[in-house]
Amino acid sequence: MHSPLDRIPVSIIIPNYNYEQFLGRAIDSALEQDHRNVEVVVVDDASTDASVAVIESYGDKIRPCLRRRNGGHGAAFNTGFEASTGEIILFLDADDYLYPNAVSEILDEWGADVAQAQFRLHLVDEDQQIKDVFPPPEQPFDSGDVVPELLRKGRYRTTVTSGLAFDRAALETIMPMPESDFRQGADGYLATLAPLHGEVKSIDTCLGAYRIHGSNHSVFAEKLAERARWRVEHDFRRLEALSGRAAEIGLTVPPDAGLRDPVHLEERLASLCVDEPQHPVETDSRLGLARAGAAASLEMNASWRRRAALATWFLSIGLLPRRMGNAVLAWKLVASSRPAFLARLSKTIRRATN
């Protein structure tokens, strides 16, 4: 006996650029879903490796979209969405993969008012060995109507591309996205704007794997300032897009929303401290950002221990001499820089603040 959910068409869109070594696993995971009505759209963004050969090997099992010119993350998302037909849309990064029950679990939790579902992922290495959970279990998702949180600080607790699913009607109101603004981080655009058009449903189960490897755009710890600067600038583009869409539906995002967001302030402080000449906000100061970060930390949705620990971290960077402050900053943002005793302490604190 079939469930009515079996009739709901779902599209899994896989944007790919030069991930031939991982692409097959991502496609297989989409094709192996236990939901009966899934189409798999694979967008190749003008790869220079053997990705196209991998795609062509699947024949008519998938819908290929081969871009002639590289346009980046946003362009690939736009291309895939235009080619898709599903009522619910998942964007799966080509180096990640889903578990066979992912779509069916999402549909079981879906509702008429849902614009976006989000779920946890296992953090795995290149050999698919599970290392952790992302986001960490002690960090609760924000759920339901997250618009007040979005308007207050421009962010709510969500996840990355491969842990998200969207209602097609919600996406049709915000896509195509500006491709030049989101050559990277297209998921940030979608997860920021989609909740303006419905509720967010959170699933604490791990429904897939988020692969960490040396080629990830998000992994370049040895270039801490560059990473932080990119994230700060990406936040500014997200906030601009959010402000524009919010204004169209009669809502207002305060101009200082980012100064209420600990995540944004963390990256902004890192950018300023590590490479001040390249920092994108000339008026920023270490103490000013540290004070804003401490205040924002105390308003987080987290245990009081976690809030207090983060507020203390911000203030120490602002108040300590620059060299010491930069060391404290690096210990949090780059795990490999921590002395052994701090690495042990970090694990203890994580357990204690669950």
Rank of each mutant, 00 (worst) to 15 (best):
D275P: 03
D284T: 04
D108N: 13
W313L: 01
R231H: 02
Y58W: 10
R227N: 13
H213N: 13
T85N: 08
L315D: 03
R7M: 11
S202V: 07
A247C: 08
A290L: 00
L298Q: 06
F119N: 05
R350F: 03
I203T: 09
R260C: 12
R25W: 12
L333I: 11
G293Q: 02
L329K: 04
S143Y: 11
P339M: 02
D127S: 14
R286I: 13
Y156D: 05
R67L: 15
Q129D: 14
G185L: 03
A30K: 12
A194V: 15
G198F: 03
H217R: 14
P277I: 01
S29E: 09
E105R: 14
V147P: 05
G325Y: 00
A308I: 13
N18R: 13
A330S: 13
Y156P: 03
A270G: 10
D256W: 07
R63H: 14
F314V: 04
K332T: 02
T48E: 11
E82L: 09
W230H: 15
A257T: 06
R36L: 14
D132Q: 02
L345H: 06
L164Q: 02
P64E: 03
L319E: 12
D93T: 14
V200L: 07
E266L: 15
E126S: 08
E267D: 13
P136M: 08
L272T: 02
S47I: 02
L190G: 00
L315T: 13
D6V: 00
T353G: 15
T283Q: 12
I27Y: 07
V281F: 07
A94Q: 06
A102C: 13
A94H: 03
T79D: 14
Y17E: 01
V147G: 06
